[in-house]
Each structure stands twice: as structure tokens, then as C-alpha cells.
């Protein structure tokens, strides 16, 4: 479990993280969302003990990262995939990391196999593509077979094939019950992968909620109804507590769920041609949730870009 307690981080004049608190729940994928410059990478560096918070504390399984004797067995991280010596081979690169973490050398070939780099284990990293570097970074994070994994924008800059591979691999890791903190500046990244999201903007917490709760509670959830008898149906639905708007030949019903609408229609012998519940997109749901939050507007504009 990762806990960030009232953490502030300044780099000179820049306030990178501003009184941020959250806990990453075990066993699920938590999305860490925010526009570029929101403080995601800085927060992750503090989790790993690389940067010191200006104030506040960050703990991994109850301890400061720097006090953990063999941290690679508890938490694995991929921050900057390109951090490597181009002159090393993939095996040499993972070899020195494993040695530093007190991990048996045999594990290196195991993780190379896992990420599909076994064939290029003896090749110099200088010739690797970004996608191969990302796989190598994931392999390094998995060396200690840790329960918790953190990935900083792992799909950034990848081609669709690389993105698909990373997504599948993450889902695979998640299905093993690992705790995953996954950052992104794109909301759309989270819809498929995350169970929970922590949204930050300008270093501050904007939202910390489960994906399901966000989309279920959204006011933009509605039911689309098409009926040849809509004129008769509308007052009945309104009496049942719904709000109804007409939209090119269809009724947009909010306030009651589809089964209730079907029941009303059937009870009055009204024919229905369409009865389809529509969930708000994660993006739209968040827009509501954080309406008026200045920082959050940044999230949206950057995810649209």
C-alpha cells in the first residue's frame, strides 16, 4: 500500500505538488490522472525515495522507501524507460539492476521471456525502439516479482501495436491481484484499465474515486426511448419521476432507469421501438464531477489535444 500524506514539493519557485494526500488501494489498478506538469512524475519520484518531499511523508507498506531493505521485492517501477546505457545489452542492463536488488541472476532471463525480449537479450540497447525500451522497463520493474507496481505514462509515444501490448500486459498483471498505480495525462487511457482514479491538477488533488461511481452517478446517464406514442408516454414518465427531453424523434429520459420505463409503457399498452440506457463517458462524467475546478479544465483541454 502506498500512502501519500499531505505532501508538498517545491523546486525553487515551482510548486510541483501542493498538500497532496491519497492512498493507493491494494489489489486494484489506480489511474493517476492529470495534465502535463500536474505533478504525477514528481509524486512517483517521491514514492520511490528519489526526491525528498518539501513537507509531508510518503510511505510504501508503512515505511519510507529509503528504509526498505530490499525494495525491489515490494515495489517495481517504470518511470523513464529510456534510462539505460546504450552500450549495454538487454541482459547486461537487467543484470546489474538485479544484482543491486539482491535478485538471483536467473530471474533476468525469466523476465526477458515474460516481456517478449528473450530473442534480443544479447543485443545492445542503442538499437532498441521506444516500444522495446518500454518492455525492458517493465521487465526491470518485475525483477523482484513485487506486489505493487507503478508505471509513469507507459504508453506515451508508442505506436498502436505497442499500446495494445502494454494494455494487455497491464491487464494481465492486474488480474493477478497486483496493486498498480498507472499515470496518464489522457482520461481515455483510464476507461479501459483502471478501477479507481486519482486526479490531480497543479499538484493538488481534484478527485479520488472509483470509475464505476463516477459513471454511475453522472447526470448525463440517460435512457433513450423511441415510441410512436411518445405524446402519451411523456406525461406518464414525468408522473413516475422522470425528466424528459425530446431529441430528433427520440425521448431522452433521466431520473428513472430503463426497466421502470418499460414497465410504465407496458402497463399502458404503449408500443416501444427503442429503450436503450446510455452511460456517460468517463470524460463527460468527470467534467460534471469537477465542474468549476479551474485545474480540472486543464485536464480536459490537454486530454482533448
Amino acid at each position: 500500500m502506498i500512502e501519500v500524506n499531505d505532501v508538498t514539493k517545491r523546486y525553487g519557485e515551482t510548486l510541483a505538488v501542493d498538500h497532496l494526500s491519497f492512498a493507493v488501494k491494494p489489489g486494484i489498478v489506480t489511474g493517476f490522472l492529470g495534465p502535463n506538469g500536474a505533478g504525477k512524475t514528481t509524486t512517483m519520484r517521491m514514492i520511490l525515495g528519489l526526491d525528498n518531499p518539501s513537507s509531508g511523508t510518503v510511505t510504501v507498506n508503512g515505511r519510507c522507501y529509503r528504509d526498505i531493505g530490499a525494495p525491489m521485492h515490494q515495489i517495481g517501477a517504470l518511470l523513464d524507460a529510456k534510462a539505460a546505457n546504450g552500450g549495454h545489452t538487454a541482459r547486461q542492463h537487467l543484470g546489474w539492476i538485479a544484482r543491486a536488488g539482491g535478485i538471483p541472476a536467473g530471474r533476468v532471463d525469466e523476465v526477458l521471456e515474460l516481456v517478449g525480449l528473450a530473442d534480443v537479450a544479447g543485443r545492445r540497447l542503442g538499437g532498441f525502439s521506444l516500444g522495446m525500451y518500454q518492455r525492458l522497463g517493465i521487465a526491470a520493474a518485475l525483477l523482484g516479482d513485487p506486489e505493487t507496481l507503478i508505471f509513469d505514462e507507459p504508453v506515451n509515444g508508442l505506436d498502436p501495436e505497442g499500446i495494445r501490448w502494454i494494455r494487455n500486459f497491464l491487464q494481465c498483471l492486474a488480474s493477478e491481484g497486483r496493486t498498480i498505480l498507472l499515470s496518464s495525462h489522457l482520461m481515455s487511457e483510464m476507461e479501459a484499465t483502471a478501477d479507481h482514479v486519482i486526479v490531480i491538477g497543479r499538484g493538488r488533488l481534484i478527485a479520488n474515486t472509483s470509475i464505476a461511481a463516477v459513471t454511475q452517478q453522472s447526470a448525463s446517464n440517460h435512457v433513450r426511448v423511441v415510441s410512436p406514442r411518445s405524446a402519451d408516454l411523456v406525461p406518464l414518465l414525468e408522473r413516475a419521476g422522470a425528466t424528459v427531453n425530446a431529441e430528433d424523434g427520440a425521448l431522452i429520459v433521466t431520473g428513472i432507469e430503463a426497466p421502470a420505463i418499460g414497465k410504465v409503457a407496458a402497463g399502458h399498452g404503449l408500443e416501444l421501438h427503442e429503450l436503450s440506457p446510455r452511460r456517460a463517458s468517463l470524460e463527460a462524467a468527470f467534467m460534471e464531477l469537477t465542474q468549476g475546478s479551474q485545474q480540472y479544465q486543464g485536464v480536459l483541454s490537454s486530454s482533448a489535444a
Partner: peptide, 15 residues
């Protein structure tokens, strides 16, 4: 320059 210092210190934080 290469950023490997962060890997080094993540593997062994006893600086």
C-alpha cells in the same frame, strides 16, 4: 546523463 542513477537508487536506496 542516461538517467540510470534513478534505477540505481531505486534498486538500492541506501545512498
Amino acid at each position: 546523463a542516461s538517467g540510470t542513477i534513478r534505477l540505481t537508487l531505486t534498486a538500492t536506496p541506501a545512498r
